[in-house]
Simulated scan of single mutants.
Amino acid sequence: MAAVAAEYEGRVTFLGMPGRGAVGEMREFVADTGTGGLTHVVDGDGALWQRFEVFSQPAFAFIGADGTARTFSGSLDPESLRRAVDELLAG
């Protein structure tokens, strides 16, 4: 994900939400996954998970410029992630 995010830098904003655990555990997750270059959001009360209907990780919420959201539960390989981002950019 970090490599794909770098490819789209300046055109798409990638945010990470590394679970709902303690902040220290989230920091460890970010370090272990090499996603430190992304901005990460702490969702301590689960409001973002609820808003985007995320029930487990991994999950992706694709949010268009108009605010519409599409959530995908599960892993995405780099090509699938690129396709999803390209669809988002195409409108």
Rank of each mutant, 00 (worst) to 15 (best):
F62E: 03
A3K: 11
E28R: 15
V23W: 07
E9Q: 15
W49L: 06
E25W: 10
G21Q: 08
E79A: 15
S80W: 08
H40C: 00
V85R: 09
H40T: 00
T35P: 03
P58W: 07
E7K: 13
V30H: 11
F72Y: 10
G34V: 06
R83H: 10
F72C: 01
V85I: 12
H40N: 04
T68F: 12
V23K: 11
G44Y: 00
V23H: 11
E25V: 06
G21E: 06
V42E: 00
A31Q: 15
R20T: 08
F55P: 00
E25A: 13
G37E: 05
S75E: 14
P18K: 02
V23P: 05
P58H: 01
G16A: 09
G24I: 05
T39K: 01
Y8D: 09
L89Y: 13
A90S: 15
F60S: 05
V12S: 10
Q57A: 11
D66S: 13
E7S: 13
E28P: 01
R82C: 04
E87F: 01
M26L: 02
R11G: 12
L48I: 07
F29P: 01
L81I: 09
V12A: 10
M17E: 00
P18G: 06
S75G: 12
G24S: 11
L15D: 11
L88T: 11
G16K: 02
Q57S: 08
D45G: 04
S75Y: 15
W49D: 12
G64R: 15
A65N: 12
V42G: 00
R82S: 09
T35N: 12
R51I: 04
Q57M: 10
S75C: 02
L15T: 02
V4W: 07
A47Y: 03
S80H: 09
G36Y: 11
G34S: 09
V42I: 07
P78I: 01
A47I: 02
F72E: 12
T68N: 15
R20W: 03
A65C: 08
G64M: 05
D77A: 05
T68R: 15
E7V: 05
A3S: 12
E79G: 07
S73E: 11
V41E: 00
G64N: 10
W49Y: 13
E28Y: 10
G74P: 00
L48K: 05
S73G: 05
D43P: 00
V4L: 07
A47F: 04
T68L: 10
A59H: 03
S75I: 09
L88V: 12
A31G: 13
R11V: 14
T33H: 15
V85D: 08
D32P: 04
G46Q: 04
A69E: 09
S75R: 13
V23L: 12
P58E: 02
L15E: 06
A61F: 10
F55A: 10
R83P: 04
G16M: 02
S75K: 05
F14W: 06
D66P: 06
G46V: 00
G21P: 01
G19H: 06
R11W: 00
G10H: 11
G74F: 01
